[in-house]
């Protein structure tokens, strides 16, 4: 059975700029996939190719094995939120949805339903030009949901949302996945996606850096954790550490950092050697750090730098 979304060998060049280079990834049903990369890494271009808005120079981008252009009634299969600007400012929210409903043969009752779903029922008759950015994003989501699609594509949907809005979006996305829908959501901030996504597709400069599960990514970050220790007895601690195979470095007159150490190991070690401690901090490099390492390292490889 083909994947809900499949991208194979996708290439796109704008003039001399290579926006997407030989990109491969898959998105499964019932899971939320974060499409992550810095600004300008080709995420939006990839999504627009998927949706038939931009042509590709090579490769395929399909939904359950079919191109968007070949889907009958595409809005019944794929719902998409692109940028927050594609509204006519004098059109009322309700009418905006009706233009889609009419063209796609969706019953008029569904318009009120989706407005309710995104919490915009009270402003259904208001002109979109008067909407805040957050309200526009909600209206975009309502538009995407009109056809009750089994695949959702969301391009930076949290842009312009306040913290409550982001919270709401998170539960909205999780709910969609729990219904068995495939959700592909792009972002340039992994931190924002940490609580939402199951899988990650990380791109940089139009190329795939990594496709994996969030769990795997979290393990990578855990493996590069360390202990930051403040103590008046750094000299003695240092000579004790010389005797065992750990890497450490002094970062201040009273502070040193031990790489890949855990408090469970260091606590008994310090007690046994009767070292006075002022402070022990378990430092985990965050997912964001891993993400930055992955994308930046890819962007600007430094010769001779440790991997």
């Amino acid at each position: 059975m083909p994947a809900a979304i499949e991208v194979r060998g996708l290439c796109k060049q704008f003039g001399t700029v290579k926006a997407v280079v030989d990109l491969d990834f898959e998105v499964s049903s019932g899971r939320v996939t974060g499409f992550l990369g810095p600004n300008g890494s080709g995420k939006t271009t990839t999504l627009r190719i998927l949706l038939g808005l931009v042509s590709s120079n090579a490769g395929v981008a399909t939904f359950n094995g079919r191109r968007y252009l070949d889907l009958d009634d595409p809005v019944h299969h794929v719902g998409s939120v692109l940028e927050a600007t594609s509204f006519h400012p004098t059109r009322r929210a309700e009418d905006h949805l009706k233009t889609v409903a009419l063209a796609a043969g969706i019953p008029a009752g569904r318009v009120a339903e989706t407005l309710e779903l995104v919490g915009l029922s009270d402003v259904a008759r208001r002109r979109v030009g008067k909407f805040s950015l957050g309200m526009r994003q909600r209206l975009q989501l309502a538009t995407a949901l009109l056809g009750d699609p089994e695949v959702l594509i969301l391009d930076e949907p949290s842009n312009g949302l306040d913290p409550q809005g982001i919270q709401w979006l998170r539960s909205f996305i999780r709910h969609q996945a729990s219904l068995g829908h495939a959700v592909l959501v792009s972002s340039h901030l992994l931190a924002e996606m940490e609580e939402t996504v199951d899988d990650v597709v990380i791109v940089s400069q139009g190329r795939l850096v990594l496709q994996t599960t969030l769990l795997d990514l979290a393990n990578r970050s855990g493996s590069s954790s360390g202990l930051r220790i403040r103590s008046p007895e750094l000299d003695r601690l240092g000579s004790l550490l010389e005797g065992i195979p750990v890497a450490y470095r002094q970062v201040a007159s009273d502070t040193l950092v031990i790489d890949r150490a855990t408090p469970e190991w260091f606590g008994p070690f310090a007690a046994k050697n009767q070292i006075v401690l002022y402070e022990v901090t378990h430092e985990r490099s965050s997912l964001e750090d891993v993400f930055l390492d992955l994308t930046q390292g890819y962007e600007a490889p430094v010769p001779g730098a440790p991997a």
Partner: peptide
């Protein structure tokens, strides 16, 4: 008008 307000994107999503 559709191109000016970029609503053509949505129109093409509905009818590619």
């Amino acid at each position: 008008t559709e191109f000016r307000h970029k609503t053509v994107t949505l129109s093409l999503l509905v009818n590619p």
